[in-house]
Computed example of a mutant assay.
Amino acid sequence: MSPITRICALIAVLPLLPAAGPLPRPQRPVAKVVSSAWGEEAARDKAGEAADVIRIASTKPGMAVADIGTGGGYYVMRVAPVVGPQGRVFAQDLSPGVLERVRQRTRAAHFTNVRFVQGSQANARLPAASVDVALMIHMYHEIEQPYLLLDRLRRSLKPGGRIVVVDLDRPSEEHGMPKALLACEVKAVGYELISMTDIKQGYVAMFRPGVRPRPETVKACRG
């Protein structure tokens, strides 16, 4: 790809964001954060969750992967060896204390390809055009402003980048996310559904950026 072609592709997926777009809040319960980790890591490994997600997301050496809402760092520890020293993992979370604990885990494992980002409920705060795969693992139902976060996340994806959501197919107040409601919310801000795959630990939904709608036209999906 020539430099000019690369720049044009980048511009195509990085539309300007309004200073304060009138994006709605979700019309469904938002689950409370009750733990920095989702389930026991050994049980998740036994169920093959991370292996399934890494395979479905086509994660490969040299890629950049963001673990949004990393919690205990379960995916950071499993993705970092996959992308390798030429790749990068962004461990992102709201809590500086959580990020410090994950930092200690990666330091003990001698991983040098992990970067740490403190975000907010409305903005992941990842660098522009930096991410091939953005993971949201068992946490989408806890996002207070999903429409705004997803809209802003678009600018952080590289050309061809995608977001991957893992959740349980049950009401958000029960720490899950109904499949149809998830697809409605993500598509409402201009993403296209690539696939939705059942796994032992719920389902994996993968999306790519499509045409971004005008923020004032976005309507909240009903839960």
Rank of each mutant, 00 (worst) to 15 (best):
E40A: 04
H141R: 10
V82S: 00
G87I: 00
R212M: 11
E173Y: 15
E192D: 07
P26R: 12
G97E: 11
A64D: 01
A205Y: 15
A91C: 04
P209V: 10
R6W: 11
A47I: 04
A128V: 13
A129L: 12
P15Y: 08
C8N: 14
N113Y: 07
T217I: 09
P81D: 05
R170T: 09
A134T: 12
R107C: 01
A37V: 14
D169K: 10
E216I: 09
A220W: 15
I143S: 11
A66P: 06
A66E: 00
L99K: 01
A66G: 01
G119A: 14
T197N: 08
M136K: 05
Q86L: 11
I11T: 10
G190L: 15
L94A: 08
V79T: 00
E216W: 07
V102W: 05
D132V: 01
P146V: 11
E174A: 12
A128R: 13
Y147V: 05
V114R: 03
R208N: 07
G71H: 14
Q121I: 01
S36L: 04
G97S: 04
L99Q: 02
R155K: 08
I137E: 08
F207A: 07
L16P: 00
V76F: 06
F116R: 00
G202Q: 14
I137C: 10
P146R: 11
P146G: 13
Y203V: 07
Q104R: 12
L135V: 02
V165T: 03
E49H: 15
E100Y: 01
V33E: 05
R155P: 07
A66F: 15
G21Y: 10
Q121Y: 08
V189H: 05
P15Q: 15
V165I: 14
K200F: 15
K200T: 15
G210H: 12
R55W: 11
A57Y: 03
A134Q: 11
G161Q: 05
L135K: 11
A50I: 06
R162Q: 06
V89D: 00
L181N: 15
V34C: 10
F111D: 04
I68G: 06
L94T: 06
R115S: 14
A183V: 05
A57C: 12
I194H: 14
G72Y: 02
M139P: 02
G119T: 03
I199R: 09
R107W: 00
A91P: 08
T112R: 09
R78I: 02
R107E: 08
R170I: 12
Y75K: 15
P209W: 14
I199C: 11
L23T: 04
V204H: 13
P61K: 11
Y74N: 03
V53H: 12
R103Y: 08
P146C: 14
P159H: 07
P85F: 02
G73L: 10
I4H: 09
R78M: 03
A91V: 00
P61C: 14
R214M: 07
E174P: 10
A220T: 10
Q92T: 05
S120K: 05
P61H: 14
K46S: 06
L135P: 01
D151V: 02
P26N: 08
K158G: 00
E40G: 02
E100C: 00
G161N: 14
S195D: 09
A80T: 04
R152P: 04
G87Q: 04
